[in-house]
Design a binder for these strands. Structure first.
Length: 377
RNA sequence: GUGAGCGUAGCUCAGUUGGUUAGAGCACCAGGUUGUGGCCCUGGGGGUCGUGGGUUCAAUCCCCAUCGCUCACC
């Protein structure tokens, strides 16, 4: 198992501050993992990622790396850490989400999923065994099982069958994991993924099915796919009760800053989301006073930093007017500076959350901050 | 100078054998984006149809004049 060492628990909610160890270093929770699908956090180099943004762990993607550059190259490189020059922990998503997001390009079968590559149309078949093999080639510190992320809305029967499929696959994932070894001499963990759409009894069943298989830890999948926010929070709150207290709980693909704080309050420790990086590339920036759309004409002569309360490289050195100019001129520096800022904000958000949990005033702080950061400027 | 062609949104252009409120792409303005293609999606503001006159119930469209641009020839 992947042990979560708990430093502190909040008295007024389920938030906890902790840490876990991997062979590539320690991770302090709650934590946000920047998304680097193709072995790069888009627009941000690894030294900024580590030293400026203070990312402790990044996420990458089995499906994308399998298609390009492919496992042969990854193995020849000595694994993804060496290949991408990132010596801190890496978590890889299994490709299960692509079953959902590339739905026009796939066929779901009982023993796996057939994909058509979005790059060249070629056919590929993913099974639980195969995604474990690929993640061995990648060498990620935390591997994820192949699952099905059910669409939303999703009727009960579909969701029930989907949970059964995910549970069946989970067993095969676990067996493949136990029958294989790390290729590069460091320990790799495997997380199970709890599905069940919006149905509490299915979430409970999914959790119980997976717990029997004794994964290193567990994630909640299939949320933030279109359901109302309150329903998502309720399901997170419900599901974390079934997840072991002494292991890190991972809420996949979430989310907006307020989603992260609300989910920490409901017992989640790990998050990833494309939002800080994708929105940065689209000129949408997060600040302690709410979001701002950097292309807006009102910033053309605004020589303040993006966020006066932010200490990131971008805010220390550049103005809103300059960022807007870079975006309008379609200069690539815009993407870099905006991505650095948004990721710094997300990492600072979870760092402060951790500090407030340790200090014992997380719940009050969270409620205050959620209001301020939710404003649209 | 002569002849021909073209002037429609900021740009590139459709269009109407004369008929409701003149369109598109790009640009601009504003939203969206939750286990990532810098993609994509949604909405909006913009036009004296070069200018002036004529014909007609009705003209961006037909006629005349005029201004501008382009090409060919001298």
């Amino acid at each position: 198992m992947l042990k979560l060492n708990i430093d502190s628990k909040d008295k007024n909610c389920k938030a906890r501050a902790g840490s876990f160890e991997t062979d590539h270093g320690k991770v302090e929770t709650p934590i946000f993992m920047p998304v680097g699908t193709q072995g790069t956090v888009k627009a941000v180099n690894q030294s900024y990622l580590a030293d400026e943004i203070k990312a402790q762990i990044v996420l990458s993607n089995t499906y994308h790396l399998y298609l390009r550059p492919g496992t042969e190259i990854l193995e020849a490189a000595g694994g993804l850490h060496k290949f991408m020059n990132w010596q801190k922990p890496i978590l890889t998503d299994s490709g299960g989400y692509q079953v959902f997001s590339l739905s026009e390009l796939r066929k779901l079968k009982s023993d796996g999923v057939e994909f058509r590559s979005h790059l060249d149309g070629s056919k590929h078949f993913f099974t639980p065994e195969k995604v474990i093999d690929i993640q061995r080639s990648i060498g990620s510190d935390i591997m994820m099982v192949l699952d099905e992320c059910a669409p939303y809305p999703c009727d009960y029967d579909y969701a029930k069958n989907s949970v059964q499929l995910t549970s069946n696959w989970a067993k095969l994932n676990k067996e493949a994991f136990e029958n294989s070894e790390s290729l590069y001499g460091h320990k790799q963990f495997l997380f199970g993924i709890i599905q069940g759409s919006i149905y509490k009894d299915l979430r409970e069943k999914s959790a119980n099915d997976l717990l029997k298989l004794d994964f290193d830890s567990y994630a909640i999948g299939g949320l933030a796919v279109g359901e109302p926010m309150e329903q998502m929070y309720e399901l997170v709150d419900f599901t974390t009760d079934f997840m072991p207290d002494d292991r890190p709980r991972y809420l996949m693909g979430v989310g907006r800053p307020e989603n992260i704080l609300e989910s920490i309050a409901r017992g989640v420790d790990m998050f990833d989301c494309v939002m800080p990086t994708r929105n940065a590339r689209n000129a949408n920036l997060f600040t302690w006073n709410g979001t701002l759309s950097m292309r807006n004409a009102k910033y053309k002569d605004d020589f303040k930093p993006l966020d006066e309360r932010c200490n990131c490289y971008t805010c220390r050195n550049y103005t809103r007017a300059y960022l807007r100019h870079l975006f309008i001129a379609e200069e690539i520096l815009a993407l870099e500076l905006a991505s650095i800022h948004n990721l710094y904000f997300y990492l600072e958000l979870v760092t402060q959350a951790r500090r407030h949990i340790v200090d014992g005033d997380f719940f009050r702080w969270k409620n205050e901050i959620v209001n301020e950061i939710s404003i649209k400027n």
